[in-house]
């Protein structure tokens, strides 16, 4: 795929911004042993509510979920930033974001205890980031700016 400098600039910036966000979110959780998604899961709404509550109430599932969440976010962020394995990382990121979205879908008549930093209807920032990751996945840049450039050459 051929990019102009401008296109490349924005695509790399998008990839790295999302990577930055994921990596920091993940590492903060990884480094805080007291962190758990339990309360967030229990606060779920929408048609997937029973599923998320099931995880919250099941200690072993919750432990797995916490682990996958923290390390998943951190590693996905790491790969997006670094520019290596970007496709699987972006796909994994979309799955995580999809789950976050489904646990707290911004539909009218659903109320959450967790504060929301805006006013949303159907589309929220989580979904926007998910779509942006789709863009990152479809327009690869890591072979130009990223570790892929070195790996492909060697």
């Amino acid at each position: 795929m051929e990019y102009t400098k401008g296109k490349l600039f924005w695509l790399v910036l998008l990839r790295m911004a999302i990577g930055w966000h994921f990596f920091y979110e993940g590492m903060v959780k990884v480094l805080n042993p007291a962190w758990t998604a339990k309360a967030y899961l229990m606060d779920s709404g929408g048609f997937m509510k029973p599923f998320f509550e099931w995880i919250a109430f099941n200690p072993s599932l919750l432990a797995v979920s916490d682990f996958v969440n923290a390390w998943g976010l951190a590693l996905i962020g790491f790969f997006l930033l670094l520019g290596w394995l970007v496709r699987p990382a972006a796909l994994g990121g979309m799955v995580l974001l999809g789950l976050y979205y489904l646990s707290h879908p911004p539909f009218p008549s659903i109320e959450y205890l967790f504060p929301v930093d805006g006013t949303y209807f159907v589309i929220d920032k989580t979904l926007v980031e998910l779509v942006a990751l789709g863009v990152v996945m479809s327009f690869p840049t890591a072979h130009i700016f990223g570790l892929d450039r070195l790996l492909k050459k060697s």
Partner: peptide, 25 residues
């Protein structure tokens, strides 16, 4: 086209672009 070279040799530019994320980390 802003495509990297494919002859297996690292140039300074390849290193810079390949490891662009290091300062971010």
């Amino acid at each position: 086209t802003l495509q990297p070279g494919a002859n297996g040799q690292f140039k300074r530019r390849d290193i810079l672009k390949g490891l662009a994320a290091v300062p971010a980390f």
